[in-house]
Design a protein around this nucleic acid. Sequence first.
DNA 1: TTGAAAGCGCTAACAC
DNA 2: GTGTTAGCGCTTTCAA
Lengths: 345, 345
Amino acid sequence: MDIRKQVTIYDIAKEAGVSVSTVSRVLTSNANVSKEKKEKVERLIEKYDYKPNALARGLSETKSNVIGIIASDIRNPFYATLFVECEKAANEYGYRVVLCNSLNIKQLEDLQLENLESQRVEAIVQIGGRVDELISDSNYVERVNRIANKIPIIITGKLDGADCYQVNLDEGKSMEIMLEYLISSGHKEIALIGGSKDVKSTVEKQFRFKQVLSRYGIKYREEYIIEGNNYDDSGGYNGMQQLFELGDLPSAIMAINDFTAVGIIRAITQRGMSIPQDISVVSFDNTFLSDLTIPRLTGIDYNYEKFGQKIIETAVGAIKGEDVARISLIESKLVIKESCININQ
Amino acid sequence: MDIRKQVTIYDIAKEAGVSVSTVSRVLTSNANVSKEKKEKVERLIEKYDYKPNALARGLSETKSNVIGIIASDIRNPFYATLFVECEKAANEYGYRVVLCNSLNIKQLEDLQLENLESQRVEAIVQIGGRVDELISDSNYVERVNRIANKIPIIITGKLDGADCYQVNLDEGKSMEIMLEYLISSGHKEIALIGGSKDVKSTVEKQFRFKQVLSRYGIKYREEYIIEGNNYDDSGGYNGMQQLFELGDLPSAIMAINDFTAVGIIRAITQRGMSIPQDISVVSFDNTFLSDLTIPRLTGIDYNYEKFGQKIIETAVGAIKGEDVARISLIESKLVIKESCININQ
DNA sequence: TTGAAAGCGCTAACAC
DNA sequence: GTGTTAGCGCTTTCAA
């Protein structure tokens, strides 16, 4: 394959009749070069379609200009959206980004952490995976801490005892906004479907759910919190079946995320009921899925652009040794579409 | 940030009382090292949590062990699925993968191509973006060819005049399978909604659509092919509106992809019609979206795992200078769910 | 089996 | 403004 050896800075220098440092200077534009030589070099770069070797540059500068990102599964719209925003933000800062999908395989997650370190990425961002777990895996924490000594690590969840930066969604606040909207729309019987109590974000939502209900003097019904192992449509579908078996239906249902909501909608539709006339459904995340359902889902939206920016901003700040916040919260807002009605009227 | 300087092979060698070559040997396990020294080195590697610098290694070996992937937008489930399969396959072959999202910004696509070359990736895979265009951008082709001289390029579309490997879906065959199923289910009035005639895969489908209809002696109706600019739900929704305005509805509708089908389903549902009782809908791609709609979408499925494997297999073969096929086709198959009925009975 | 040393391609400090 | 040169951290001949 390597018929044509890659052109190097030496080849350019030689043909231009200058030293390699001069070529390097026009490459980096870090120092002055006479117009004449500069143009000569540029012409040759063009001629040979020369592309500086990023490995050599990285080795020389002892920095790669890369931020590593470990996501649990990019096929999930939530992660895909966030990843793209991170990629954009990183590019703005002059960084490239390397993505690894851990696919919820712990072994892979460990390996990817190592790989990224080997690649000398300047920061590691982890979105989803073990940082979602309510009870942090102590082996993993140890592993992360060893790396965090050398490279800043930014996570979107939590990792107890780990020395990393956190950029989190404000799950509690989201629940509060969502629930107050439902209550103000006359709903008093509200179920929360989906999610697992092993997951931090879910537990936070559940906790705030109870808290807000009690603040409004609404009776909390244990059986209206239905968990599921998967954050996908099957979780929603099965949860809804449980609710049907219970017999006593609430007037509104909160889905733990859009995927779950899709399953809930399916179950309700199959049952011959209409949303929102017979029952209201709301959700969290406002991914593109929430616009694909019939009806479109009212729910909590996060500013993914800001989310991505904050993550990268934190990473870059930490790389530069600046004093950046250890924890940042991303605000949420309500987006009203068609899946929830006011039952006061 | 760099409080603790990264440990190098020299540090290990020194403390172990051996030469760096010995350490390198245990790292690569390319040569024999006495058990005693080997263990000593391994202990130190463990002790210092030493991770070899991939940049240095890459520079030294003049190979990066990385395959670059340019996708148009990873938020699209089709690309996300394919990307993950490529990532898995690459890992199997001992390669890492670097993803860039071109987001349909041509300038970005050019830049990413350069970046990947700079990183000395060993092959570049492009899925979506300019390789989807029916009429290839000649500037881009030239650009690609300059790179293809040094690095194998694998695309999932076409790039006329470019020296790359192609791994393609068999769009024509897919259409044939799909259409024959509809016809065998008694459908004679069939519309094809979505897609643009600038896009190769769409044009191939349209072409075969007409061909198969004529083969079965079914009258081809121009007004039943409705294009759209976007391959998303709005394209489907708007296309369906056009069909409603036409007044004369077909018995079955083919959506160019799942996203489009979602919009079509919305339009039909809004109109108070039922799928598949009043009208059948089928689609291409069988992404997870096709399982989220109500009813679930009957349509063409591709073996994404094989697709990803073939892409990487081709890349790796080309890297090694093996004689791999310039063009490979990925077969498709029909998946029957609930969105299409037999109207013969 | 082992070590010395050259080389991978670049940057940057230093001297002129 | 420009060239020389010493690294950056690793692999791999070549001798021993």
